[in-house]
Write a protein that binds this DNA or RNA. Structure first.
Length: 133
DNA sequence: AGCCATGCACCG
DNA sequence: CGGTGCATGGCT
């Protein structure tokens, strides 16, 4: 499974209203998600995730690739997560984990234990891949 | 490469 | 009319 530590921009705390997280271009991560056609501009796919409470969430996995169409973007994003963040009151520093079990996408979260995280918190390697046996 | 930020469209 | 999400540019 893969785990993402939320950045402040992911949750909208920076004032942004993106409503989603950024997905790095790492094979281990991208392999988890469906493959999006790079021939197409900004291809997207809707994914349904189920959390621990068996609640369903619809997220959009989008490949912003306008780099190949005259723009400058070349990155993946998982959007439409604002409801999820709000429902569980997740904030920057908290972690969200994704899992795929029998063709079913699962989502979970993990709160950050670090108390003194009030100010800006620098995130490096915010994504973690966990090999499941 | 990854995170920050925003104009605008859409929708309640 | 205000919040949300898309698409995109900017900054580090």
């Amino acid at each position: 499974m893969i785990i993402k530590q939320l950045s402040s921009n992911d949750t909208g705390e920076t004032g942004g209203h993106q409503g989603g997280i950024l997905v790095p271009k790492k094979m281990e991560i991208l392999n988890f998600f469906p493959t999006l056609p790079k021939e197409e501009k900004n291809p997207r796919i809707q994914l349904t995730f189920i959390d621990d409470a068996y609640k369903q969430w619809e997220f959009n996995f989008i490949y912003y690739n306008n780099k190949f169409f005259g723009g400058t973007r070349n990155e993946y994003r998982l959007t439409g997560m604002t409801k999820f963040f709000k429902f569980y009151h997740l904030k920057a520093g908290d972690k969200v984990n994704f899992n795929k079990h029998e063709r079913v996408y699962k989502i979970g979260y993990e709160r950050n234990n670090i108390p003194e995280t009030n100010g800006k918190l620098k995130l490096t390697n915010s994504w973690i891949t966990v090999k499941m046996k």
